[in-house]
């Protein structure tokens, strides 16, 4: 398929997207195409531009430059058609209303909603229907927000830090429900801080830094952009660790950690020079290492 054809059939097509707040270029030229059915994780450190990008995608803020198409429509038209919806990070619930009332209201405002009971069931909160929103835990509130996002039966679901207030168990349950939803062929874009969530649930990872996309691909591909492995070993009396294939050396007493571009060459040279080296462990770099390597400049 040509690029135009891909864009025409895309769930999301962002091109040349820019947004600045005063002197800060929050989003600085983002191009992104997401095909229907993809589950995409949007990663990046705080201030990378994730939330700003999500806001523009939802039509909640207007870009300074660039174009946004959601199923070929403007964000607002896609919202009106019920094709895109979102679980907002700071999305509030009305303190003086019940769960069923809040979800019922949002359903009533949509043109073709699913039954409220079904939305509550899919979000796993059927038992909370009559509960006032003030009486909910953080994780329960997140699930109500999930129900609010589901109720219009969107083709594209955008989740901004969906599991941030959840404990480990609730997170797992949430993603199980999420998976049940994505199995029906829906498109999902979720911004997250938790790399393990991206690794486990996303087909594709988009990494942002300073308002730009710095990596985009499958988890394996993104991992591979930071090639190399880590070699750990205990080397009594190691003096010179200037070995072939080693990029960086870290040591704590007899323990050494070598970041290698060629771990095979490094381990051979290490054993030749220090035959007493033991407890050798070689691991591939994880998504977290890739993440740190690709986004690290911000933290320095």
């Amino acid at each position: 398929m040509t690029e135009t054809a891909v864009r025409a059939g895309a769930a999301v097509a962002l091109s040349g997207l820019r947004k600045r707040f005063g002197e800060v270029r929050a989003v600085d030229g983002v191009d992104l195409v997401i095909s229907p059915g993809e589950v995409v994780a949007l990663l990046g450190p705080n201030g990378a531009g994730k939330s700003t990008t999500v806001d523009m995608l939802l039509g909640l803020s207007v870009p300074d430059a660039g174009e946004i198409r959601v199923f070929g429509k403007s964000p607002r038209d896609a919202v009106v058609a019920g094709q895109i919806s979102a679980m907002l990070q700071s999305g509030a619930l009305l303190d003086d209303a019940t769960v069923a009332e809040v979800v019922g209201l949002i359903a009533a405002l949509h043109l073709k909603p699913m039954p409220v009971a079904q939305a509550l069931r899919q979000a796993g909160i059927a038992d909370l229907a009559g509960r006032r929103c003030t009486k909910l835990s953080g994780g329960q509130k997140q699930r109500v927000r999930f129900a609010l996002a589901l109720v219009c039966e969107p083709d594209l679901l955008v989740l901004d830090e969906p599991t941030v207030a959840m404990d480990v168990e609730t997170r797992r349950a949430f993603w199980q429900q999420m998976r049940a939803y994505t199995d029906t062929g829906r498109t999902v874009l979720f911004a997250t801080h938790y790399l393990d969530e991206a690794e486990e649930y996303a087909d594709r990872v988009v990494l942002m830094r300073s308002g730009r996309i710095v990596a985009d691909g499958s988890v394996a591909q993104v991992r591979a952009t930071v090639s190399g492995r880590t070699l750990r070993a205990v080397v009594p009396g190691a003096a010179d660790l200037d070995l072939p294939g080693v990029r960086a050396v870290e040591r704590r007493g007899d323990q050494i950690m070598l970041t290698c571009s060629d771990s095979d060459a490094a381990v051979r040279a290490l054993l030749t020079r220090y035959p007493h080296a033991h407890d050798i462990e070689i691991t591939a770099l994880g998504l977290e290492d890739a993440f740190l390597a690709l986004t690290g400049e911000d933290n320095r």
Partner: peptide, 14 residues
């Protein structure tokens, strides 16, 4: 409601 962000939620409806 503005402070809570409820208006943002409403803006994700028609």
């Amino acid at each position: 409601e503005r402070g809570l962000g409820w208006q943002r939620q409403l803006r994700l409806t028609p």
